[in-house]
């Protein structure tokens, strides 16, 4: 359903050319939960932006459901992002001075959903990530984990078919990280394709497939044998144990 065909991304910095991605081929099936792993600067975020239609490759093509992305206009790309793709950014990227509820409503504003319907759906999405009691809070009145969950609520409020999460647990402590992974796994169980960018092996093992990337190239593509289920990790933590265990975030 989502394919990168020989994509390269090259930045020109004065005299130097930075090759963030070199002829990457990747296809992601519908309903898959996939992690992209690699060291810092290996091109993970760049790849996520390309398959999330936020950016265009220097060469090669990104194909979404048979349609070539490079032929689409910026407005068409925006419409596809709005309807089909949910982003969870590493740095949250919430609108400051805007309540959690309004932040989650934002994609619906651009989808043309009317006011009351919008509030209803945004409220439901926040409930789903366990923030029903924080609707009116501003981002700076929320903890990092709560902000990340607002960002997830915003990503899923439009019922996208794919959720892309860049280092979703990067800024979080271990228990918040487990909560976030649990939400992502739940989404995946409901049939949503989930792509996680991480440099952490434990986070990656929550998914069913790991793509290793180094210096802009895919070096390994493996199926996860011992998959971690966040729901099981979380349970002992909520029943009293101090050590969540399993996920060393």
């Amino acid at each position: 359903m989502l394919e990168a065909r020989s994509v390269s991304k090259c930045y020109h910095l004065g005299e130097v050319d930075v090759h963030a991605l070199r002829e990457v081929d990747l296809s992601i099936c519908e309903g898959q939960m996939l992690s992209i792993m690699g060291p810092s600067g290996s091109g993970k975020s760049t790849l996520m932006h390309l398959i999330g239609l936020l950016d265009r490759p220097t060469s090669g093509s990104v194909v979404v459901e048979g349609e070539e992305v490079s032929r689409m206009t910026p407005n068409e790309l925006a419409a596809v992002r709005n309807r089909r793709i949910g982003f969870v950014f590493q740095s949250f990227n919430l609108l400051s001075r805007t309540t959690a509820l309004a932040n989650v409503e934002l994609p619906l504003v651009y989808a043309g959903v009317s006011g009351s319907e919008r509030t209803r759906r945004a409220r439901a999405a926040l409930e789903r990530v366990g923030l029903a009691d924080r609707l009116g809070h501003l981002p700076n009145q929320l903890s990092g984990g709560q902000q990340q969950r607002v960002a997830i609520a915003r990503a899923l409020v439009t019922d996208p078919s794919i959720v892309l999460a860049d280092e979703p647990t990067g800024n979080l402590d271990s228990s918040s990280g487990v909560e976030v992974m649990n939400i992502l796994q739940e989404l995946n169980e409901h049939g949503i394709t989930v792509v996680i960018v991480t440099h952490d092996d434990d986070v990656a093992r929550h998914s069913e497939r790991i793509v290793h990337i180094r210096d802009g190239r895919i070096v390994r593509d493996e199926a996860v044998t011992a998959r971690i289920l966040a729901a099981e990790v979380e349970r002992p933590a909520t029943t009293g144990s101090d050590e969540p265990g399993g996920v060393g975030l």
Binding site: R81, N82, R83, N93, L94, P107, R154
Partner: peptide
């Protein structure tokens, strides 16, 4: 942010 979530 607005563009990422679908502003045209």
């Amino acid at each position: 942010i607005r563009k990422a979530v679908g502003a045209r």
